[in-house]
Design a protein around this nucleic acid. Structure first.
Length: 489
RNA sequence: GGUCGCGUGGCCGAGUGGCUUAGGCAACGGUCUGCAAAACCGUGUACAGCGGUUCGAAUCCGCUCGCGACCUCCA
């Protein structure tokens, strides 16, 4: 390999060479979902992005610990002053236990992540399992003088912190601007400043998720869990912290402040942010109500969808854009990705059927080098995929006899495509996963073999009938030189 | 209002000073085929506008227009 992995660090706004703090170990923490609703397209982007990074770091030989949390407590539903726990609110609506909600949506999240072929993280800690640690961190920040207690709640003192530190360095904000732009709401707040954030929040009587602490019966502030769980499992200083761009401020900014206030050190070496998915140019969000859940995506059951899109199509769609670009959802774009993915996978099938020659006429080293260079350049998967398509063209030319490849190079090319497409990009074939599917496939194959017989006997009436009837059912038949293929419409 | 980012050919989407006609999809032409489809091969169209810097800009600078994100729960 000619180049080394560089990644874009949001903190420095530059691409930096990736050099882990304690090689060969590499630690990465990614903000996971709040499990109070179905996972949607937006959840898939960081999951796929950081799954790619996880896979690639492992390929590069690092011993990677990938931590992704489950937020099952602590996010406030309204503003920090009056809010109640998001999960508790939903639980009341549904008249069930909060932890039942948590379990339900954790399960469906895991199912969706498996469908997207993301590898499970090394550790998936729950916020609710780390209340004690969160209280301890709040206490430490309090002792260090960067927080204050009011009526059983503990708030982070941003102004004081900012005197010696730079609050806003990740998101490029200045405290003065924040002060100038924040209008105080009629003096209702317990906080010294509106931009102070809760480390511990006293629970209102109706608040059902609560824990005892020295300040009050309450719950931890919503930024604290990530600071606690990342450093608990990766160390006070660790390599990569990832998440969606929308978490940059205030969430990640607060994490930085908390860690610094607690330990005196910056915890994170590389901050990475994936960009957002938009729908018709607008961000998908709860408040706009324009989000598409992954289950809807995979089943096609949403009015915005013209058809179902398989998990691998969704994954490929995301990989065809760079993770730091916004990606606009549209049926046209997804359909283009579907076709493109088919072409890529078909090319690999062709590759597996190629017969070697004595000589190699194609330049494999160039292909490989360009591909790794793309990946090393801040995970530039669209460029990588472009090169893989160039390679597919070569494969087709070899297959048709216009180019040649020898036995060793063929073997190498096969393992290269397996590595890139399946191991690193994390794509996979999606056919025949259940027993019913298998039997169904055999049935269709049986019919098509009969059709093949009919064709050989020039009984085109029969052969066309089988083809047309299958087409009516929604099975498209494609003839090949020496056989057939079919797919569901 | 403050901060940040974006505007590339029919669509998606890379590219940040001169040689990538990026790539995918669509379109068109061809090969193949009993026919059709598929597959494969080939081809075209571009850098929001205006001005500036430069021998040279999609790429740097300025302005204009348009769009978006964050500042509030959100991946």
């Amino acid at each position: 390999m000619k180049t080394e992995l560089t990644i874009y660090n949001t903190l420095t706004r530059k691409k930096e060479k990736f050099e882990p703090i304690n090689p060969p170990f590499a630690g990465m923490y990614v903000c996971g979902p709040t499990v109070y609703g179905d996972a949607h397209l937006g959840h898939a982007r960081p999951a796929v992005t950081f799954d790619l990074l996880f896979r690639y770091l492992k390929y590069l030989g690092y011993k990677v610990r990938y931590v992704r949390n489950i937020t099952d407590v602590g996010h406030l539903v309204n503003d920090a002053d009056e809010g109640e726990d998001k999960i508790a609110k939903k639980a009341k609506l549904d008249q069930v236990e909060p932890m039942e909600i948590v379990q339900k949506y954790t399960n469906s999240y895991h199912r969706n992540m498996r469908q997207l072929n993301t590898l499970p993280p090394s550790i998936e800690p729950h916020a609710s399992g780390h209340i004690i640690e969160q209280a301890a961190m709040a206490k430490k920040i309090l002792e260090n003088g960067f927080a204050y207690e009011v009526n059983g709640s503990v708030y982070f003192d941003v102004e004081k912190y900012n005197k010696k530190n730079n609050y806003g360095k990740l998101s490029g904000r200045k405290l003065e601007d924040l002060m100038a732009n924040t209008r105080e709401l009629a003096g209702q707040s317990e906080k010294k400043n509106p931009f102070d954030f809760a480390l511990w929040k006293k629970a209102e009587p109706e608040h059902i998720m609560r824990w005892t602490s020295e300040w009050s019966d309450g719950f931890p502030g919503w930024h604290l869990e990530c600071s606690v769980m990342s450093t608990k499992y990766l160390g006070e200083k660790f390599d990569i912290h990832g998440g969606g761009l929308d978490l940059q401020f205030p969430h990640h900014e607060c994490e930085i402040a908390q860690s610094k206030a607690a330990t005196g050190e910056d915890a994170v070496k590389y901050w990475m942010h994936n960009n957002l998915i938009t729908i018709e140019g607008q961000k998908m969000s709860k408040s706009l109500g324009n989000f598409i859940t992954l289950d809807e995506m995979f089943s096609g059951k949403n009015d915005l969808l013209e058809q179902a899109y398989s998990p691998m199509v969704v994954r490929f769609f995301m990989l065809q854009a760079h993770y730091r670009s916004t990606l606009d959802f549209s049926n046209k774009a997804l359909q283009a990705s579907e076709k493109g993915l088919q072409r890529l996978l078909k090319g690999i099938e062709t590759l597996n059927k190629i017969k070697p020659s004595a000589e190699t006429s194609v330049d494999l080293n160039s292909l490989k080098e360009k591909s790794f260079n793309a990946l090393n350049d801040d995970l530039n998967t669209p460029i990588l995929i472009a090169h893989l398509f160039d390679g597919i063209k070569l494969i087709n030319q070899i297959n048709s006899g216009d180019e040649t490849i020898n036995t060793d190079d063929l073997k190498e090319l096969k393992s290269f495509y397996k590595l890139m497409v399946f191991d690193i990009l994390g794509l996979k074939e999606e056919k025949g996963e259940s027993e019913t599917d298998t039997k169904f496939e055999e049935t269709v194959n049986l019919l098509l073999n009969i059709r093949l017989e009919a064709k050989k006997n020039k009984d085109f009436a029969t052969s066309d009938k089988i083809r047309d009837e299958l087409n009516k059912i929604g099975i498209v038949v494609k003839d090949k030189k020496d056989g057939f293929e079919w797919e569901l419409k």
